[in-house]
Amino acid sequence: MWTYIGVAAAILLVVGGVLLGLVRGSRSRNRHLDEAPPEPGTPGPSDADLAPDGAIGTIEHPGEVVEDEVSPGAGPAVAEPEAPPAPTVETPEAPAGRLRRLRARLARSNTTIGKGLLALLAGGRLDEAAWEEVEDTLIAADLGVAASTELVDALRTRVSVEGTTDETVVRGWLREELLALVDPTMDRSLADSRIDGRPACVLVVGVNGTGKTTTVGKLARVLVAQDKDVVLGAADTFRAAAADQLETWGGRVGVPTVRSDREGADPASVAFDAVAAAAEMEADVVLVDTAGRLQNKVGLMDELGKVKRVIEKRSPVDEVLLVLDATTGQNGMKQAEVFAEVVGITGIVLTKLDGTAKGGIVVAVQRALGVPVKLVGLGEGPDDLAPFDPEAFVDAIVE
């Protein structure tokens, strides 16, 4: 009996195997029928695509190919985002080039002084009335009464001694006397290099409306053109747009700006932070912009004095530049005197000198304060600020 049972089991195994083979063959044929035939000329799989047994991948379900295994820790391949384009950094014009260009503009703006004086002096009728007219012309040009009288007396003496009113000769005399008044011997250098291993510190002050923040931005361009590493401090925290304006100026030439994100922040604190940051960056110079002040407002002027004192806890203040509007004339003299008392002015920046024929303010402010005009602004362009050159200034007037 066991023999019959064994034979029956063998027959069942054979029949089962045949049926299983038929099912697999049917599935294989269906899979190949579902697949689109390859396009003519399409290359077959390469050796790299073949599994070790020659099969193309491993089939889990009809038509589904399992991808190659990814190494542990490796995420999906993601394209790196494109970096935003770097901001364009401008190259400011060199100061030497500015002086040549600005001299012509200065000559045009001061023709009243030069032509008026030369016409009077070369007229041949230098009586007392004529000399009074010469003096009035100089006073009207904001030269100041004392300086005007001094210049007229010197010219009268030369004309009397030499006995000539030749225009070429008189022009030479006028140039010499004006140059003596402007005083080319004054030190007009700017604190723009490291001092005793620290950045030079420049505090910029002035009344409202003189273009002070713009002047700081333009001064940064002057220094960058001289290969100086500059840091700006936006300590004008009362005018909402002042810090943004200064940061824009600095960004154009690649200069960082230290500012507060809070409107109305303590300006002394911002100034202190700017000086500290400049030291950490090992910059050559830090320029600190301050809020515009009215010289007759005691509280505002006292606060300006506080800004300077707080800075000095971190670093000496090497330069205090007063920005004056040349068109304000003698009123600018009163402003200058008050600022000099509060923070100790070391130099003057005259803006808008191209908008007036009253270039005599250069002489007047220097004589009143005993400090030199160091920079002049002669236009609205970003590079229209230049170091003051006494000889170029005087030549522009008399030529």
Rank of each mutant, 00 (worst) to 15 (best):
M1A: 09
W2K: 06
V7Y: 04
V15M: 12
G16P: 07
G16W: 04
V18Y: 14
S26G: 09
S26L: 10
R27P: 00
R27T: 01
R27Q: 14
S28C: 02
G41C: 07
T42W: 08
G44M: 03
D47W: 00
A48N: 09
I59M: 12
G63K: 03
V66N: 13
D68T: 04
V70K: 14
V70E: 15
A77C: 02
P81L: 04
A83L: 15
P85F: 06
E93Q: 14
R98W: 04
L102K: 01
A104D: 14
L106Q: 08
R125S: 15
W131C: 06
W131E: 05
A146V: 00
V152C: 10
R158A: 12
S160R: 14
S160E: 15
D166A: 12
W173N: 08
L174M: 06
L181Y: 07
T185H: 09
S189W: 00
R194M: 09
R198E: 14
C201E: 06
L203C: 07
V207M: 03
G211R: 12
A220G: 00
V224N: 11
D229S: 14
V230R: 12
V231R: 04
A234C: 11
D236I: 01
A240I: 00
A241Y: 03
A241I: 03
D244G: 07
Q245V: 03
E247Q: 13
W249V: 02
G250R: 08
R252I: 01
G254M: 09
R259Q: 08
R262G: 01
A265H: 09
P267V: 04
P267W: 11
A271K: 07
F272R: 10
D273V: 02
A276K: 08
D284H: 10
V285T: 05
V285P: 15
G292Q: 13
R293M: 10
Q295I: 00
V298I: 08
G299W: 01
G305V: 00
K306C: 12
R309Q: 12
V310E: 12
R314A: 13
R314N: 09
L324W: 07
T327F: 02
G332R: 07
M333L: 15
A336H: 09
V342E: 15
V343M: 08
I348R: 10
D354W: 05
D354R: 05
D354C: 09
T356Y: 13
A357K: 02
G359Q: 05
Q366S: 11
Q366L: 03
A368G: 08
V373D: 11
V373T: 07
L385H: 05
A386G: 10
E391H: 11
F393P: 04
E399P: 06
